[in-house]
Design a protein around this nucleic acid. Structure first.
Lengths: 233, 233
DNA sequence: AGTATAATCTGACGTCATGTCAGAAAAAGA
DNA sequence: TCTTTTTCTGACATGACGTCAGATTATACT
């Protein structure tokens, strides 16, 4: 998310009128915001540079001062998400203790995040196959997740929490499921409810990874609604 | 592949030489074959009408006599797959008896089919977000599967084979996983091996749908490759 | 503030793939 | 061989892209 600092703040007069930001930075943000707004209501295929820049309030050609092309813009948007996602996923990946509650927490966070940013995720996924470079970034993004999940499964296998099996294919499968599901449910309006999505993800992960643990204490696994999940504001 | 016959010989006596097919039909097939060949080695984004028609051996504009545009062509290709897929999936959907072997059979068939036709699947999935109509067809295709799986789960729930839970979200999740996975592993060259993919799909479906049944008889589920699985081909 | 300089913007241009159409060429039928 | 129908083709118009030189505006310094 954080690019470079506003850096040398040597404003002598009061650049505050124009906000502390450099012009270029303001324009860049205007473009990004226009894109976010547009993509929250339209599919990526309808986004053109002309459209976008008229929303952003400058001329079409100015776009190319900030991004190589639309796919480059999507890449930047993805990078923004990436951090948040890895951060919100931390509990299951790094916590210790009963893995199922950690899984639930991680997935709740993931679902909530994607509930808000799902349109970006969808836009990136839609755009990726059109551009070799973006596709590479997207696959790398997914692959990072595969690596992380594989590691975590192997750790839990080493400590006996998960029975031994080839971890990577399972990690890939679960991740692809998550991605497709999150995009499917939250990638366009109107969005699905969070709860059923959260529940089904947790159900499949736990029955796949922790079958013995999951057998108990969850009837149909309906009433497991946890803390009110602060409305997130 | 095939240029045009030495032709020049307009023998209307035996149209068999030019095959029994009408010219238009031969051209249509030439286009489709050129597309299949191209897509088995290149991503959809590199396919242009000009490229395609030069492979097919006729002029660019002739393309539009047969298809509205490239997305329409992709739709036709998808329709071709659709039948095969539903057919090969029959065992679990329609058979009766122990559900796990049926699942295994269905998934083996699915994996094998997609091993061969994966590039089409990928091309369609890649192309879908670019065209409203194709996207609709693709989503409908997935949705038909969701319906079928939901029904089957509910049947098995009614007969006590599967514990009660909201079937549709689970069906959706499992289907999206399958689709992503099949495209991921078989959508481009070099392709993954069939066995691990088949195994992981079966593992996740069974542990999700038939957790009690699956607990037994499968150690880590590695050594389940009893039969030599005739080398494919 | 006033001005020099650097940063940013803009319109015009060339490119490429698309989809259409009228006329040419070839196939089908007799 | 001739006629009719089908199929193909080149040329055109369109729309989005990405670039660039010159104009315009912001910024820094006195």
């Amino acid at each position: 998310m954080s690019e470079k600092e506003p850096s040398r703040v040597r404003r002598r007069n009061d650049p505050l009128d124009h906000s502390v930001l450099r012009k270029s930075e303001r324009t860049r943000l205007a473009i990004i915001n226009a894109a976010l707004e547009f993509l929250s209501t339209h599919p990526f295929r309808d986004l053109t540079v002309a459209q976008l820049m008229s929303l952003a309030g400058t001329s079409r050609s100015a776009f190319y001062q900030y991004f190589e092309d639309l796919h480059d813009l999507m890449e930047k948007l993805l990078r923004g998400l990436e951090e948040d996602i890895f951060q919100v996923a931390a509990p299951w990946f790094q916590g210790d203790g009963d893995p199922i509650p950690m899984l639930e927490e991680t997935m709740a966070g993931l679902v909530q995040l994607c509930y808000r940013q799902g349109s970006i995720l969808r836009a990136v996924a839609d755009a990726a196959p059109q551009d070799e470079r973006l596709e590479h970034v997207w696959l790398e993004f997914l692959n990072d997740f595969d690596d992380a999940v594989t590691d975590r499964i192997e750790q839990h296998q080493a400590s006996g929490l998960i029975e031994p099996f080839d971890a990577r294919p399972v990690a890939i499968a679960l991740n692809r499921m998550d991605a497709s599901l999150l995009i499917h449910h939250f990638g366009r309006r109107p969005r699905s409810q969070q709860q059923p999505v959260r529940e089904v993800i947790v159900r499949i992960w736990t029955s796949t990874l922790y079958p013995e643990l999951s057998r108990e204490g969850s009837v149909p696994a309906q009433s497991r609604s946890r803390r009110k999940a602060k409305p997130g504001k």
